[in-house]
Design a protein around this nucleic acid. Structure first.
Lengths: 331, 331
DNA sequence: AGCGTCGGGGCAATCGTTTTCCTGATTTTC
DNA sequence: GAAAATCAGGAAAACGATTGCCCCGACGCT
C-alpha cells in the first residue's frame, strides 16, 4: 500500500482524490509513492462504497456484425471520453442468452445498458422495470417510453431521390431487399413519396429481392429486358447497387452517363470496389452510437430522455452520380 | 435483502452458493426469496472478497475492424462459456490510449488481458511485469516469452499452392499486397517455396501492390500484357482476387477453365460477390480468438503457456478452382 | 499567559458478500 | 441416562477504498 511510503490509508485516499485538507507537500509525497509502486485503486472496493461502477453494458442482440461495429465504436468513443468502460455482450439472437447477459450486467451493477442489433425494426424491451437506464441504438424498443436512437431511413431515401432529381434524372427506379424487411419497405415508401411530391412517378415499380450483389445483377437484367426507359436507379443497399452497376455495364450502359446510381449504407469496400465508385447514403452509425451513449450518460445523471430519436442520414456523392461537364443528361 | 425473507445474511450466502450445512428446506426458502426479489449478488462485493472478477479485458490495438471482430467473437464465445465477461477497449493505434486502457483494466482487477489487432506482425508488449496474464491474438508480441496465437500464414499459402497443383495447374503466379507488409512477404515466400519444392518455378515473378480490388484488376492487366502463360493465380487477399477475376474475365479469360483463382481471408462478401465464387484460404480467426481465450483461462488458473502458437489455415474450395468433368486443364 | 480557532491527519464506520468460528440443539452411542 | 457426536445457523472478521468525525498541536487574540 502507498501508506507504507507515506502516511495512513485514509490520508492516502484523500491525497489521491483531492479530498480533505492536506499539506501540498504530503499530497505530493503520497502521489509519488503511488506512482512508484504503480498503485491503482481497486475499482471494486471503490464502487462498493460509491454505488457507481463507471461501466455500461452493451448488448448486441444479433451477432456482432457490420452494423453493430460502427455503433459500438461510436458508443465506446462517447463513453471512453467519460471515463467509462464497456462490457461487451453478444446475445446472438438468443433470448435465453440475452436474459442471462442482462442478469450478469445487473449483478455487475453497470450504470446503464445500450442495446444494439442488426436490424432497425422495433423489438421487445430487454426487460421491465430494470434498475438501470437502457438506451436502444439502431434498433428501437417496441415500448414508446423507452429511449431509442434510430437512423432516419426515410430521410436517407428522400436524400437519394432528391440528389438524383438535382442532377436532372427523371426516370428513376428503386431496387431493394425483401418486401417483408422493414428497412426495405420504409425506404421504398419514402422514395416513392418523394417522387410523387415532385409530380413524378417511378419509371418502373419497385423491385424487391435479396440484399445481395447477385440480386442486383438480376434486377439489372430485368430492367433491361422490360425495356423500361430509365436514367437512374436508387438501390436499397450498396451490394445491390454494385450488382446493378455490373449488370448495366456489361449490357453496355455507361454509368453515370446513361444511368446514375445511388446505393445505401456507404459501406467502404462496396462503394470503392464498385465501378464507378458509388454514391451512397450513410446512416452515420457511429453518430448513432455516440448519441445513444450520450443519452445514456444523461439518464445515468438523472436526466432521462424518453421516446424515439431519428438520426438524419447523409448523402456521400461519388462518381456514380457525377455530372459530366456537358450536363449529365443523356441525349 | 433476501435475509428479510428468510434468515441471516451469512446463511443466505451459504444457501445461494451451496456452502455450509443447511436444511434443504431452509436452502429452498432462501432461494425462493431471492427469486422473488430478483436478488443478484453484487459482483463488486464478491470480487472484493475473492480477488477474482471473472472478467477479462480485450484490447484491440488498431481500431475494431474486419479482423478483430471474428477474433472478439471467438474469444467472447470461449470466455462466455466460462461465465466470464469481456471488457472491450479500442486503443485506435494510439499508445497513450493503450496505456490508459491497461491502467483501467488493472484498476478493475481483470483476471487477464487479450490483445488483438489488425496485422499479424509482432508488436511491443503492452506492458512489463503486469500482475495479470496477457495473451496476444492474431498479432504477436515481440517478446518470445509472451503467449501469442497467430495464424500460420505460410501454411495458408502452402495449402493454396498445393490445391492449385492438385487440380493440375503448373503455371502459377502470385499477386499480393505491398512488399513492405509482413503478411504479404510471408505468404509470398511460402508460396514460392512450395512451388520450388515441387520442382516448379513461378510463371512470373510475384506482383506486389495494394490490398485492393483496383490493384487486382491492374495486376490482371499486367499479366495479360506481358503475355505470360499462366493457368492459375494465387492472390494475397480476396479483394485482390476479385479484381484479378474481373480483369481476366473482361479480357475473355474464363475462370476456372483458363485460369484458376485462389484468394486469402475467406471474406464472405468478397468470395460470394466474386464471379465465379472464390476459393479462399480461411485463417479461422474465430478459432484463434477461442484458442487465445482458452490459453488465457489456463494462465489464470495457474497453467501459463509461453511462446507463439501458429494456428493452421483452412482452404475453402469454391467455383474458382472447380475442376470440370473434362479434367480442368485447358488444352 | 490562557483560551479559542484552525489546519493536518488519524480512526473507524461503511459498502455487500464470503467464510471461519462458534454456539445451541438434537441425535447417537454405550 | 449421560457424554459425545452431529447438525443448523448465527456472529463477526475480512476484502479495499472512502469519508465523516475527532483529536492534537500550533498559532493568534485578548
Amino acid at each position: 500500500m502507498a501508506t507504507l511510503a507515506g502516511v495512513s490509508t485514509g490520508t492516502a485516499s484523500k491525497a489521491l482524490n483531492g479530498r480533505g485538507t492536506l499539506r501540498p507537500e504530503t499530497r505530493l509525497r503520497v502521489q509519488q509513492a503511488a506512482e512508484q509502486l504503480g498503485f491503482v485503486a481497486n475499482a471494486a472496493a471503490r464502487s462498493l462504497h460509491s454505488g457507481r461502477t463507471y461501466t455500461v453494458g452493451m448488448i448486441t442482440t444479433d451477432s456482432i456484425g457490420r452494423f453493430s461495429i460502427p455503433l459500438m465504436i461510436g458508443a465506446e468513443d462517447a463513453l471512453g471520453a467519460g471515463q467509462m468502460s464497456v462490457f461487451l455482450c453478444d446475445a446472438r439472437d438468443d433470448p435465453i442468452r440475452e436474459q442471462y447477459y442482462v442478469r450478469t450486467l445487473l449483478s455487475r451493477k453497470v450504470d446503464g445498458i445500450i442495446v444494439t442489433g442488426r436490424r432497425t425494426q422495433a423489438r421487445a424491451p430487454i426487460g421491465e422495470d430494470l434498475p438501470v437506464p437502457v438506451v436502444y441504438a439502431f434498433i428501437s424498443s417496441s415500448d414508446p417510453q423507452d429511449c431509442s436512437v434510430v437512423p432516419d431511413e426515410a430521410d436517407g431515401a428522400r436524400r437519394a431521390i432528391q440528389h438524383l432529381l438535382a442532377i436532372g434524372r427523371r426516370r428513376i427506379v428503386h431496387v431493394t431487399g425483401p418486401e417483408h424487411h422493414y428497412s426495405a419497405t420504409v425506404r421504398a415508401a419514402a422514395a416513392e413519396e418523394t417522387l410523387t411530391a415532385e409530380g413524378l412517378e417511378p419509371a418502373s415499380r419497385t423491385l424487391y429481392g435479396e440484399w445481395s450483389e447477385a440480386w442486383g445483377r438480376q434486377a439489372a437484367g430485368i430492367l433491361l429486358s422490360t425495356g423500361a426507359d430509365i436514367d437512374a436507379v436508387f438501390c436499397g443497399s450498396d451490394q445491390i447497387a454494385r450488382g446493378v452497376a455490373e449488370g448495366l455495364r456489361e449490357a453496355g450502359r455507361e454509368i453515370p452517363r446513361d444511368v446514375a446510381l445511388v446505393g445505401f449504407d456507404n459501406w467502404d469496400v462496396m462503394v470503392q470496389g464498385s465501378r464507378p465508385a458509388l454514391t451512397s447514403i450513410d446512416m452515420d452509425l457511429e453518430g448513432i452510437g455516440r448519441t445513444a451513449a450520450e443519452l445514456l450518460l444523461a439518464a445515468v445523471n438523472g436526466e432521462p430522455v424518453h421516446g424515439q430519436r431519428a438520426h438524419p442520414c447523409r448523402l456521400v456523392p461519388r462518381a456514380s452520380t457525377a455530372v459530366p461537364a456537358d450536363s449529365g443528361r443523356r441525349t
